[in-house]
Every structure is written in C-alpha cells, then in structure tokens.
Amino acid sequence: MEGLYSGETMGPMPVKFSIQQLSTFYGSVQALRSLSMDVATNRILGVIGPAGSGKTSFLRTLNRLNDLLPDFRVEGRVLLDGSDIYGPDTDPVLLRRRIGMVFAMPVPLPMSIYENLVYGPKLTGIRDYQRLGEIVEKSLRAAYLWDEVKDRLNLPALRLSGGQQQRLCLARTLALGPEVILLDEPSSGLDPISTARIEEALAELKSSYTIILVTNNTKQASRVADETAFFLMGELVEIGPTEKIFTAPGDSRTEDYVTGRFG
C-alpha cells in the first residue's frame, strides 16, 4: 500500500478548489459554517467526521446538486480553477460534467450497463459508436469492472451485484471525462473485497483526477487519502496531510474522533 502515499513525495500541487468562507443553509437550518480550505489538484482529499457533520452537504455544494432543493442557500465562494462556481457565468449543467459524483448508495439508471456508461458522453454530443465503445471500455477498465461485464454490456445495470453497481457508477462518472471526482461514502454498503477494489481504482485514478472522498470509515481515509479534513457540526476542525491528522492532530477533537473516542 506504500504506493498510495507517493503523492507526498511530489512537490505542492496547484489548487483545484479554493473554498472561502462557505456557509450553506437548508431553509433556516445551517449545514456548513464558514468553511475555508484549498483542495490540491491530482490528490485525494479524504473528508471524515461523524454523521450530520456536513460532509455530504459539502460534496453536494461542490457540484451544485443542492441547487435542486428549493430552500437551499449558499454564502461565501467556491472557486474552481479560480472562477466562482456560484457566479453568474457558471452553468450548473456544464459544471456537473466537469465534476463527477458517485453516491453513497449505488444508483445505476434503470437501463443497460452500456446505456448507463454512454448516458453522460451522449449528453455532451458524442454520437460516434466507435468512440463511445472506446469510452465504455476505458472507463470500465479504470473502475476495475471490465473483465466482469465485458460480455454482457446489454444486461440491465440493476442486475449487477451491489459492489459491481458501485464500480459501474464510478465508471459512469469517469466516462464523462471529469476533472474532479466526488465520492460520497462509496463503500458504505459494500463488502471488504468490493471496497478494496474501489480503493485500488482510486489510487490509480488520482494521477489524472482530483478526488474528494467523503467517508464514514476513518481507516479508509488513512489508507487512500493524501490529505484529510475533519468536519464536526458543519465546521472544518482541521485539514492537513493524512499522516499528520492520524498521528499528530492539532486539535483534541480530531484526536478524539480518529482514535475512536467518540463519533
């Protein structure tokens, strides 16, 4: 597993996301409280924290999926490559093509494996069958699913096992050719082997993508994340290199959480 930490030997990476005093509200309920942090390019950022700490809300703010909720409101700024994603020039639909998301529960669309994978690319206007075929194979290989499904791409995606469905969702996201991948507890419902396969895929993927991984499992963050952020009650308590967060955290609350004293 040493290879996973290779990011730390590289120099500092350029900033992908710069988040400045971000607060979010659902109606009168505040979810995030004035968050400020940077997310480095081509790294895996792990986000940990107990249930209700705002981790998922944070992810859904980054690809503007929260926009779909009628009472949602955001304050502060989220800069992606320097431009504000909540600015007037940002089209949320185009933004979501740059920022892929994998949900906690695998949700393949009710269609075949192949159709799930070409859904995104087709929306961007790719019609050429050969090209679509290449995308399908490449993304399935990257998600470590190709060998298991290559002979039955026309099978309804809902017939796959849970672990396969989740890797399909990852592949489907990769097929978009995004710059950032957001993962919301991608292995919460999976067995250890499926989880290992996902983590393996992520380690491969970070050379080409910026990855933000929300996880309930602190061990998972320590295994795969280059940097780790600890959230508590909608606040960012601490962010730093994963090793430091897990061995010498700066805040006692972080220490209590990672050592399992609460949460």
């Binding site: 639909v93 979501r96 949900f103 949700v107 669309l109 269609m111 996201t173």
Partner: peptide
C-alpha cells in the same frame, strides 16, 4: 420514480428535460 435516479442523471450533466425524457419517463 426514486429521487436517486434524478440525482444520478443530474450528476452526469443532464438538464432537467433530458433527465425527464431519458430517465424519469422510462422508469
């Protein structure tokens, strides 16, 4: 139709109408 289908479609860069046409009506 489960909200997760809609979210999955939106997260893949579909507009509302595309989501309705290709996912919701189908489901």
């Amino acid at each position: 139709v489960p909200a997760s289908y809609r979210e999955g479609s939106f997260a893949l860069g579909a507009t509302r109408w595309q989501t309705v046409r290709m996912v919701v009506l189908k489901a």
